[in-house]
């Protein structure tokens, strides 16, 4: 996974060609020494586009999860700590959002607001909020009964201070594990939106969008479709493996 992060950072400097550099004479060329992953219908180098596309996918994956993690954790911690009607209201709202399959809700939001990569990012973030809210709430519910929280309360700490300084740090482990797995899901969802024409717009070298373009040339140039898809899968796999590993390390009970 570190390799991916590194690749995303240095991609524009080490990519053999520019992401939008066209060479119509070289269109739909099979993989060769000059073009390791072949070229697409406009003669663009697939390897360069996959490399530079990694920045887009990682950015969307990470930012969507940060959005969901911050809002969901805040909602969940407040609901769990305060309890009562705040808890009921927040959690019923989360139940309603959870009634929608996440990809469908994200598609609906972007279809209505108008397709763009940023809108896709926001939509994926919004539909992921309930997962973090529920997790943070369940942590807050158990932590607020613990002695150190009672002690802080006795010392006169305010609710925001208790939640921020005492409950949140102790609730972080499962949230971080979920966030790592969430990045994997967000990358696939962003690519799915791109594939449906609802995410990044041409000529952005976004992996899902590259697959849509390559679909038309499935018979003549399968390489244009093989490599962007493999990139999505390998990146997602890396985040899933890291999430599983983190879960095993941080919560030995969950180890099966």
């Amino acid at each position: 996974m570190l390799l991916f992060l590194l690749l995303a950072l240095v991609a524009p400097f080490i990519a053999p060609y520019g992401a939008d550099q066209q060479a119509l004479a070289d269109r739909l060329k099979a993989p060769s020494a000059a073009h390791w992953f072949g070229t697409d219908d406009l003669g663009r180098d697939v390897l360069s586009r996959v490399m530079i596309g990694s920045r887009i996918s990682l950015r969307v994956g990470v930012l969507a999860v940060v959005l969901a993690l911050l809002s969901g954790s805040l909602l969940g911690l407040v609901a769990g700590y305060l309890g009562g009607w705040t808890d009921s209201l927040f959690m019923r709202l989360m139940d309603v959002v959870l009634a929608f399959p996440p990809t469908l809700l994200a598609i609906g939001i972007v279809a209505m607001r108008g397709p763009s990569l940023d809108m896709a990012l926001v939509a994926i973030g919004i539909v992921s909020i309930p997962v973090y809210a529920r997790l943070a709430r369940s942590q807050a519910l158990s932590l607020k009964e613990r002695e150190f929280v009672t002690a802080a309360r006795c010392l006169g700490a305010t609710a925001p201070r208790i939640v921020g300084a005492h409950v949140l740090p102790n609730a972080l482990s499962p949230l971080i594990v979920q966030a790592t797995l969430g990045i994997a899901t967000a990358i696939i969802e962003a690519a799915a939106l791109g594939f449906l024409g609802l995410g990044a717009q041409p000529p952005t070298p976004e992996w899902g969008l590259m697959l849509t373009n390559a679909r038309a040339f499935i018979i003549n140039a399968p390489w244009a479709m093989v490599f962007p898809g493999a990139a999505i899968m390998v990146t997602t796999l890396a985040f899933n493996l890291m999430g599983d590993g983190l879960r095993d390390a941080l919560d030995p009970r969950a180890r099966a």
């Binding site: 696939i188 799915a192 594939f195 999505i232 899968m233 997602t236 796999l237």
Partner: peptide, 10 residues
Amino acid sequence: SMPIFWLGLM
């Protein structure tokens, strides 16, 4: 970890 749209195409 599989994007099903890619698997479908493959």
